[in-house]
């Protein structure tokens, strides 16, 4: 079966910034969150997939077709939500709807209408008259309405109020129920990532990590609350120590072995939160070894 998206040995330099992706294959029916600090290159990464920015080297294939090729039929299979709605200011939502419905054979009118109703998006107003939040919602409505096999969302919930965000997540889940859709989402909201993502991809110093299964990643770390402060400054697996007795480990088995053989009692233990792990990866340069 043809994969929705594959990326191989891609490199892109912009001034003194360099983005490198070794190999990524996205499977049908999955949701992958792309995580990085501001300016890490998430948007560049997405734009390359849409051939809006051309990579210096390497291959990007959407449903088996190179995005840099002559044949651009793949574009009808992808909906891409950029952070801003560009070039749409003079149009109304209704006019944009008409345009999208003509461009995308998979357009789902009923889904679009339901989304607009639920999120109270006015379709008769010109885009430049809408508030930034409503503009984002309209942009999302148009992209969800496209009902494409691949959906690429660049920080879709950034300007959204809480009820709308919940409704939006619900719609995404509904889309996924059919099992033949694939979503890539960049988000700074830990909650979005927790509720939606199957896989995580980090952008660390210009390098895109491999795909990490969310639960395996979380389970590969463990927090240990010890009864006493350990006699050495760093025990096996330890990557962080807080309050002298709380050890964060990226090799729980090794840490556990050490604690047992050295008779160090564990008061409590727990898997860390996703936020903690993201912090370690993005801010402390924690190397992922899943």
């Amino acid at each position: 079966m043809t994969l929705p998206l594959t990326i191989r040995n891609v490199e892109k330099s912009i001034d003194d910034f360099k983005l490198k992706i070794n190999e990524l294959s996205f499977e049908e029916g999955t949701i992958t969150a792309v995580i990085g600090t501001n300016g890490a290159g998430k948007s560049t990464f997405f734009k390359m997939m849409m051939n809006l920015v051309k990579q210096d080297s390497g291959d990007i294939d959407v449903f088996g077709k190179s995005v840099n090729g002559e044949d651009e039929s793949w574009k009808q299979l992808v909906a891409y939500q950029a952070q801003t709605l560009i070039g749409c200011d003079p149009f109304t939502g209704e006019q944009l709807r008409k345009l999208m419905a003509e461009l995308y054979p998979s357009w789902d009118e009923q889904l679009f209408r339901r989304f607009c109703e639920k999120l109270r998006i006015p379709l008769n107003k010109k885009v430049h008259k809408l508030s930034p939040g409503v503009r984002t919602k309209l942009n999302l409505a148009l992209n969800i309405g496209k009902n494409t096999s691949l959906l690429i969302l660049d920080e879709p919930t950034a300007a959204m109020d809480i009820p709308s965000r919940n409704d939006f997540l619900q719609f995404l889940l509904e889309l996924m129920e059919s099992g033949d859709k694939t979503i890539l989402i960049a988000s700074h909201q830990a909650d979005d990532i927790k509720k939606l993502a199957d896989y995580l991809v980090f952008i660390q110093n210009g390098e895109v990590t491999k795909m990490l299964e969310k639960d395996s990643l979380i389970f590969s770390y463990r927090l240990f609350w010890l009864k006493e402060e350990p006699p050495v400054s760093r025990i096996p697996g330890e990557i962080k120590r807080t309050y002298k007795k709380v050890i964060l480990s990226n090799q729980p088995d090794k840490t556990l072995d050490y604690l047992t053989t050295h008779n160090l009692a564990i008061a409590d233990e727990q898997i860390p939160t996703l936020e903690d792990i993201i912090h370690e990866v993005l801010m402390e340069g924690e190397m992922i070894n899943v």
Partner: peptide, 16 residues
Amino acid sequence: PSIRLLAKELEISSIT
């Protein structure tokens, strides 16, 4: 519940 819905509620991946 569907796999996706339970994954969202329990905040874990649909793979699990």
